[in-house]
Amino acid sequence: MSTTRAASEVTAEGTPLTAHTERAANKIFFGLSAASASLILVVLAAVATFLLLEAWPALTDSSGDYLDKVAWISPEKGQSLIEIAGYLIFGTVLISTVALLIATPLSIGIALFISHYAPRRLATGLAYMVDLLAAIPSVVYGLWGGMVLVPFLQPFYQWLADWFGWFPLFAPAEDGTVSATGRVALSASIVLAIMVIPIITAVTREVFLQTPKLHEEAALAMGATRWEMVRMAVFPFGRSGIVGATMLGLGRALGETMAVYMILSVGLSYSWSLLNASSHNTIASYIAAQFPEANTQGVSALIALGLALFVITLLVNMLARWIVSRRSEFSGAN
């Protein structure tokens, strides 16, 4: 042991310290993952470039009558693209946010029930059913929402407006009534909520299940009830997972087209009331409705709206990342 030897001669259980095979495998794996990572960047850049190029005419044409040439604008003649985009962004964000306000607490509750409260067999069955909900196509949600859920909810909307009409989101029309069809923003939000619950539940459930036993036992051992243990160990550990799951859900809600298109009676305004029909629309559903009849300029304008949706989604994701990274010093990761 006292003499020095070349590293390649030193053996540990017969393998030289310079193991060439492992290095090669390492390099291949690194190459593969780097390639996949750059592929994602390329796709992202390609989508962004496409949107920008196609939207360019609509974004840069400052001649006031540009939109008059856009065939599909007819009902909103006289409004500029920016105005329309404003209404649509407002509608999109409003409807999606309300959907998440409904879906997130429910999802966390379901996930927690599955991960920490339900007996094993019930939990497995429930988890499976929630996953099945995610497999239902959005057209089916749209059909079901429009034909079953909306008529069912309509009387409840009137009740909501009668009692909570003072709250801007539930304000009725001037004559005190709400839409008789129920095809209002709140209906769209509720159906969107049902659609995103499976995603949020699945992700948060996984995160909750990964709570270190160590921390759960730490809480229980000092006399925490199960709910206190959840607040002390499970939620703090899963916080960034919950935010991430919510943002995933928001991403789906923002971009959801069919369900909104089939349920919502559309309109353009900055109304906060979720109970009045013909007041809101979302970017995705607007594009879907207008695209078939759009002329060249129309398509360009629609793509500009698509670009706006893209930017909103990007901002939402950046916000999520920022929230997750805040106080990372205290995160469960170390």
Partner: peptide, 14 residues
């Protein structure tokens, strides 16, 4: 009270 094999302070708490 109980103290465990691996130290388990709550990481999200000061």
């Amino acid at each position: 009270g109980m103290v465990f094999q691996r130290p388990n302070p709550f990481p999200t708490m000061s």
